[in-house]
Computed example of a mutant assay.
Amino acid sequence: MTVVRNTDLVAPPKRRSFATLSSGISRWRVPLSILALFFLPWVLPSEALAVNVLIYGLVAVGYNLLFGYTGLLSFGHAAFFGAGAYATGIAIGAFGANWFLAMLIGVVFSGLLSALMGVLAIRTRGIYFSMVTLALSQLVYYTALQASSWTGGENGLRGFTVSTLNFPGFSVNFLDPLVKYYAIMVVVALALWFVSRVLNSPFGAVIEAIRENETRARACGYNVERTKLLSFILSGVLCGLAGTLSALHLSIVPLDSLHYHTSGLIVMMTLLGGAGSFFGPFVGALAFLSMEDIFSLWTSNWQLIVGVIFILFVLYLPKGIWGTLISWGKAR
């Protein structure tokens, strides 16, 4: 007769300890993400690269909310990024708005645009949804191209600069690269806190249910179309917020910020980092921008090298860098 000891029923210590660690990381994911971003300019070769990681990481966070958590593949998110940047630049350059009001205008404009595009796009599914978002995004691109008196046309929007961020009682020198980084990081930190709250809410559970099985979510009584639309709008607002930060950072808004090429970059960054993971978008933005920074010094055809690396990731690391690390940790 085999004697079953109590010790045989106890989970392996390593597995149990990792589960506890994973739960703690998930609970403190916002502070840990902010802590990692805090030290970023000290480990990267330049503050400008660190700022770009912040901005494009935030774009990828917004896109990840729609693709990674809701399961909707969009090819048109450059419209929201560029719209936020253009609205902010026009508000400052043409109407003399202060930086905060200009950012608010950019975010609201991106939200209205995402609501309009979302109403049209969520009527479709699968690849048709992707193609509709791509077509609508290109419509926004050509509208900006033709409205050259407002947008600058092919030359992009210029003629505005934000040198200081004025607050009650003090001001911040926005021309100092390190100060600029931490000023932008405050906005990104607030956005991460907001996204975490959304994901931890009942709404976050519903969008993940739609991603896993849309038919079952509808059978459970959830309004799938309305939930998709709200997710689409929130995603567009976050991308628009990143666009406003980009406009303040560069003091120009290139027309390419609305092009489908930018939409493709957003998708690549999200997949490289790990779709459906909280910190993955920043890892993906860091990976892509670092490869661009390094390979562009070697050859003008750096995009070919990055493309090959991206293909290898899709084939062999479909969960992305951060997602793969998390999976390896759970398997140990």
Results as ranks from 00 to 15, higher is better:
131 M>Q: 05
297 L>F: 04
230 L>R: 09
266 I>D: 01
185 M>L: 15
193 W>I: 08
206 V>I: 15
29 R>Y: 06
145 L>W: 12
305 I>K: 09
151 T>L: 08
10 V>H: 08
21 L>H: 03
112 L>Y: 01
283 V>T: 07
299 T>R: 01
48 A>E: 14
114 S>Y: 07
150 W>I: 13
147 A>S: 08
313 F>I: 03
233 I>R: 03
35 L>K: 01
44 L>H: 04
124 T>N: 12
79 A>F: 01
178 L>C: 00
164 T>F: 15
136 L>H: 10
328 W>S: 00
25 I>S: 03
137 S>C: 14
130 S>I: 01
122 I>L: 11
298 W>F: 15
190 L>C: 12
152 G>C: 06
147 A>G: 04
238 L>N: 01
98 N>P: 15
315 L>M: 14
125 R>N: 11
112 L>A: 14
77 H>I: 01
102 A>P: 10
148 S>H: 14
303 Q>P: 08
45 P>W: 11
276 G>V: 02
200 N>R: 06
145 L>Y: 12
308 V>Q: 06
141 Y>Q: 07
285 A>Q: 05
97 A>R: 05
208 E>G: 00
127 I>F: 11
310 F>M: 08
259 H>Q: 06
180 K>R: 15
171 S>W: 13
98 N>A: 10
284 G>A: 02
319 K>I: 00
133 T>K: 05
239 C>F: 09
127 I>W: 08
43 V>F: 12
221 G>S: 05
296 S>Y: 09
156 G>Q: 07
144 A>Q: 02
142 Y>S: 13
252 I>S: 15
81 F>W: 06
147 A>R: 12
255 L>C: 04
53 V>C: 07
189 A>C: 07
295 F>N: 01
113 L>C: 09
302 W>C: 05
87 A>P: 09
12 P>W: 13
206 V>N: 09
122 I>Y: 11
152 G>F: 14
190 L>D: 02
244 T>F: 08
146 Q>H: 09
113 L>A: 11
327 S>Y: 10
67 F>T: 13
61 V>C: 13
254 P>K: 03
40 L>V: 14
182 Y>M: 11
292 E>A: 13
115 A>P: 10
326 I>K: 07
289 L>A: 03
212 E>L: 08
283 V>Y: 00
30 V>Y: 05
102 A>H: 09
97 A>M: 14
275 A>W: 10
173 N>I: 09
155 N>G: 15
229 L>R: 03
51 V>R: 14
50 A>W: 04
98 N>L: 09
110 S>N: 01
183 A>S: 14
313 F>P: 00
297 L>H: 13
90 I>H: 00
231 S>V: 10
85 A>V: 03
84 G>C: 05
156 G>E: 11
169 G>M: 10
86 Y>T: 05
295 F>M: 04
109 F>C: 15
275 A>K: 03
240 G>L: 07
126 G>L: 07
174 F>I: 07
116 L>G: 05
